[in-house]
Structure formats: structure tokens, C-alpha cells
Design a protein around this nucleic acid. Structure first.
Length: 566
DNA sequence: AGGAATGAAAG
DNA sequence: CTTTCATTCCT
């Protein structure tokens, strides 16, 4: 493994706005779970054979990933152009550079295969966020509503209410949420075949040589400019294993904190990062969690889905192709639209290969789309939605469904023209309108529309392509909080009645569903408190928090009771 | 097999 | 922290 390939690796990772050796800031990065500690210890004691394996795996992951031609780091223009080519990925990364950053372990020899999807490259499947379950989706949709009712209520309280609300929903009401959760989960899993529900622990960030003298290093060519830094910067000498993580994380923080857009930093960063990676292969492997080991020893190609370059088709191209296929009334509409709006973006892109405009066009397509939709009164503003969700969401759903139907390309239907016209309008107005890709794998997704939401557009790197969860959530039926209150009232009444009657335990059990439901959480609560006993040493703050929580809960219940009594 | 633990969203 | 739930781990 030579320096060039590593350099290349860096360049690649940089292209994706993620850094090879960065360490995830996520709380899940390090497993503090008690039951895993013994495993780690076991690994520590484990035979050399295992460690060997680990080492091999790691070195492979780190260094055999790229055999591609190396581009000089100095060529920043190349980088930028690469960004422009792999469109949507870059700016998303820019917006969320700190998310998951553990790219290292995901790189494997198989990464070279051109068939891989580039999408997964920066987002290893096992670092993808879990797909939310039905309740969480429900929360996402209804939290603003509850928040509106209780503006001063802490988020925990809101969540409690939401849990209560959820418990009072019947099956049919829950169904759309369950369905969406399942649908998204399926799509997600198919998009991330290697996804593990348990996040893998941080990889051995660096296996640095503890004693430089004892190890035969694979030294990079001296001619390389960063060698100087390399030789000077050997963190392995400074700390032991346990400390290395912190050190490297510091370094990595430095990396990740560096704005990805700042190309001037590239040299510096790369020169810093390369030494770390250079030293790695020769050093004894870190003790690693059992699962981790198994995972990587079994799936050496776990990064199969990680692809450097040349990914899927440009979505905008797809859109354009789709548009070009409709040559009827749609064309007329388009002509009208074209007449009204200037063609700046397309012309400019055609001129010289620079896709700058297109790129910048995509930068804030979410916002633009939002503006467009709002100004055109085609859709409700999402923020407005948040505030007035109860009133608007049903209308929104209607409109969205109409749009979806319009997008469904049934010739002859006027709605079709509407949908495509909107699309054209969006294009003319330099606004990105992201309709659901129609080349979806499963047919049912074809009817979906895809909009931009502030949160989803760049955040879900591992979300299945062509699946806009946020939009789907916004399309879900919005439940009435008042109905929830009413139901709550009724259930309370029934409880009381049953209590006073003191009979029919079956009914009581049924109606006390909320209580029995809370058992699980109570259980966990106790467990957590137990664990916290060991962890928390600041009794004062704990007390304060407890008091605050008590007061908060009291206020909350008071409010609820007020509303109920009304 | 089943209980425990975990993490998904959201501030 | 707080909710529910799906999943995984461990006994």
C-alpha cells in the first residue's frame, strides 16, 4: 500500500465531505454497555490469531480500497467538478458534515468494483440511522401539535403525551403509521443490505505503532510532501490505546470541523490524516468488540455498497428524460411555461461543461421548492404546517395526493399535465422540484411524490433512494388532538366508573391499557435509574432535575386536567 | 425462549 | 430525558 493510494483515498473521502479517519461524535460510537465490556476484555486477551485477523481486516479496509488513479491534491478544480458530477451528494454533506464519519471501516477492496452504488459510499449501512417505527413517525407528525398545546412543556412531557395519545389510538388509526414505518423499513433495508440494528462500535481508529523501533513500517515514499509531517506526527508514541481514541478524535474533530468547502485546507488536512493511516497497518490491532470482529471477519466486503465514483444516474437527467417523453398537451404547457420563464439554467449548463449553476441550483432546492409551492399556493408551507398542522394537514394530503396522481402519468388526465407543468414551472423558475423517481423498484412507490423538506433533503444519507419519508409523513392523516382529549376523558371516566363499580376485571384490564402499557417504560425507567445510580455522582443536580421534572409533570397534568374538565 | 438493552425522533 | 416498538444480544 503506497502513499498514493492513500492520498487517493483521502481525496475520495474528501469528495464526499467525509473524512477517512474521523470519529463519530455520536454517543453510539463507543459502547459503554456493561455486557459488552467483558467481550472487549475477552478480545483483548484473545489469541494472536484473532488479532491477526483483525489487523488484516483493518488494513485491508483501509488501504486496499482504492486502486484508482490518483489525482494530485492540488487539483482542486477536479474535486469541485467531481462534486458537480455526483450531484446531490456533495451539498448534502456540506450541510451535515458531522453526522456519521466512520468511513474508514467501511472501505474494502470490493469497493473498487464499479457496480457499487456511490450513494452508500459515505454512509456505511451500519451507520445509517435506524428507520423510525410507527410511533416515532407518529411523534414526528404530532409533536408539533402537542407542542402547540403546551408550548412551555418540555420535550419529554410532549413525548409522554404522545405516548399516551398513541396508546389511545385504535388499530385503524395506527395503521397508516405502521404501514409507512414498515414500508420505509423495507425500502431502507433493501437500500442498506448490510445495515445492522446495533451500531457497530467505532473501528480501531488507528492502530499506531506503539514502539516505532519494534515495528517494520511500511513507509511511504520519501518524496511525498507530507512525509515530513508524517514522521513528526506520530500520536502512537504519545498515548496508550485508551487514550489514542481521544487523541485521534481530537484530530478528527479538527478534520471534520474544517469546512468541506474550504479547499485551501485540503493540503493541510491530508498531510495530517495521511500519517495516521500510514502507520496503521503495521501496528497491533486494537481490542475490538466481539460483534465487531465477527462482522468484519465475516463481511470483508461490508463496504460493498460503498462506491467511490460514478454512481447512479443523475436524477435531474432522469427528470429531463421523463419530461421529454411526454409530447402532448404537456408540451404545449411546457412551451407556455418556457415562454414565461427564462431558460437560464439549461442553457448555461449546455454551454460549457460547468455545472456550477445546476449545482448551486440544487443547493437549496428544498427552500426553493418550498417557496415555489407556497407562492403558487400549491402546497402549504411546512412551517406553517407545523403551526397549523391540525387544520391544514388534511388539505395538504389532498393536494399532495392530487399531485401524486398528476405525477402518475396517466395520459389523458388533466392532472398529469398539472403535475408535469408544475415540474416545468419549477424548472423554469430555477426551482428544484423533486418528484418521486418513477423508476422505483417496487411499483407501489411510483405514486409517491417527493418533495423537499428542510430536514430530510440532506440528512438521510442512508434513506432509500426515491423515498422521502418526510413527505410521506406529511401525507399521513393527521389526528385530532381534541379527539385524543375526548378519548382520554372517556377512558378516565370509564376507569373511574369501573373503579367505583369494582367489578369486571377484564374490562378494567382492557381500559387500563395505558397503565399496562406504561409498565414497560416504567420497567425501563427503573432500570435506567439503577444504572444512573452508578453513573451519576452529582447528587445535587440530580435532585434539582428531579424537582424540576416533578414540577413539570405536575404542571402538565394540571393543564391536561384543565382541558379535560372543560 | 424470553428478558434486557438499544436506538430510532425531537428539543 | 421521555415515549413505543423492532431488533439484537445474552442468559
Amino acid at each position: 500500500m503506497n502513499f498514493l493510494s492513500m492520498q487517493n483515498a483521502f481525496t475520495k473521502s474528501h469528495n464526499n465531505n467525509s473524512f477517512l479517519l474521523s470519529e463519530s461524535p455520536s454517543k453510539n460510537t463507543f459502547i459503554s454497555d456493561s455486557r459488552r465490556t467483558p467481550i472487549e476484555n475477552n478480545n483483548r486477551i484473545s489469541s494472536n490469531g484473532q488479532e491477526r485477523k483483525l489487523q488484516e481486516v483493518w488494513s485491508m479496509h483501509k488501504f486496499e480500497m482504492d486502486k484508482v488513479k490518483v489525482e494530485p491534491m492540488v487539483n482542486f478544480n477536479n474535486i469541485k467538478m467531481t462534486w458537480a458530477e455526483t450531484q446531490e451528494i456533495p451539498q448534502e454533506r456540506i450541510e451535515e458534515p458531522t453526522e456519521h464519519t466512520l468511513e474508514v471501516e467501511e472501505t474494502s477492496p470490493k469497493t473498487d468494483e464499479p457496480e457499487m452504488q456511490n450513494e452508500k459510499e459515505e454512509s456505511p449501512s451500519h451507520h445509517a440511522r435506524r428507520p423510525p417505527n410507527a410511533f416515532l413517525i407518529f411523534c414526528k407528525k404530532h409533536r408539533p401539535i402537542v407542542r402547540e398545546r403546551f408550548p412551555n412543556l418540555e420535550n419529554r412531557g410532549v413525548t409522554k403525551i404522545l405516548g399516551e395519545w398513541w396508546a389511545l389510538l385504535n388499530v385503524t388509526e395506527k395503521q397508516p403509521y405502521n404501514d409507512l414505518a414498515k414500508e420505509y423499513k423495507d425500502a431502507f433495508l433493501s437500500a442498506n443490505p448490510n445495515f445492522r440494528w446495533y451500531k457497530l462500535p467505532a473501528p480501531p481508529l488507528r492502530t499506531l505503532t506503539p514502539r516505532p523501533t519494534t515495528v517494520t513500517k511500511v513507509t511511504p515514499p520519501l518524496s511525498s510532501p507530507s512525509n515530513k509531517l508524517l514522521s513528526e506526527f506520530t500520536p502512537g508514541k504519545l498515548a496508550d490505546e485508551s487514550q489514542l481514541g481521544g487523541l485521534t478524535s481530537l484530530m478528527n474533530n479538527n478534520f471534520t470541523a474544517t469546512p468541506k468547502t474550504d479547499f485551501e485546507n485540503i493540503n493541510y488536512e491530508s498531510s495530517l490524516s495521511s500519517p495516521v493511516s500510514v502507520i496503521q497497518p503495521t501496528t497491533p490491532p486494537k481490542p475490538i468488540k466481539k460483534r465487531f470482529f465477527e462482522y468484519y471477519s465475516e463481511n470483508k466486503g461490508c463496504a460493498r455498497n460503498i462506491l467511490p465514483d460514478g454512481g447512479g444516474p443523475d436524477s435531474s437527467v432522469v427528470e429531463e428524460q421523463n419530461n421529454s417523453n411526454n409530447m402532448t398537451q404537456q408540451d404545449l404547457m411546457n412551451k407556455v411555461v418556457d415562454g414565461i420563464f427564462a431558460k437560464q439554467p439549461e442553457d448555461s449548463t449546455e454551454k460549457n461543461g460547468t455545472k456550477e449553476i445546476r449545482k448551486s441550483e440544487r443547493m437549496c432546492k428544498g427552500k426553493r421548492y418550498e417557496i415555489f409551492m407556497v407562492e403558487g399556493k400549491l402546497l402549504g408551507n411546512k412551517r406553517e404546517n407545523k403551526l397549523m398542522q391540525q387544520k391544514h394537514c388534511k388539505i395538504d394530503s389532498k393536494i399532495e395526493t392530487e399531485l401524486s396522481a398528476a405525477n402518475n402519468n396517466k395520459p389523458g388526465t388533466p392532472k398529469l399535465d398539472l403535475g408535469n407543468t408544475i415540474k416545468r414551472l419549477a424548472e423554469r423558475t430555477n426551482i428544484k422540484l423533486d418528484f418521486e423517481n418513477q423508476n422505483d423498484d417496487n411499483g407501489e412507490t411510483n405514486q409517491r411524490t417527493r418533495t423537499i423538506s428542510e430536514t430530510s433533503e440532506g440528512s438521510n444519507k442512508n434513506s432509500p433512494p426515491n423515498f422521502n419519508l418526510d413527505l410521506r409523513i406529511s401525507n399521513l392523516p393527521c389526528l385530532s388532538y381534541d379527539e385524543f382529549l375526548q378519548r382520554k376523558r372517556e377512558s378516565k371516566k370509564r376507569k373511574i366508573r369501573i373503579k367505583t363499580d369494582g367489578e369486571s376485571k377484564h374490562k378494567a384490564q382492557k381500559l387500563d391499557k395505558t397503565e399496562t402499557h406504561l409498565v414497560g417504560s416504567k420497567k425501563r425507567k427503573n432500570k435506567q435509574s439503577i444504572t444512573h445510580l452508578g453513573k451519576k455522582e452529582d447528587g445535587l443536580s440530580t435532585d434539582l432535575i428531579g424537582l424540576a421534572t416533578l414540577a413539570e409533570v405536575a404542571a402538565n397534568t394540571e393543564k391536561i386536567n384543565e382541558q379535560i374538565s372543560e
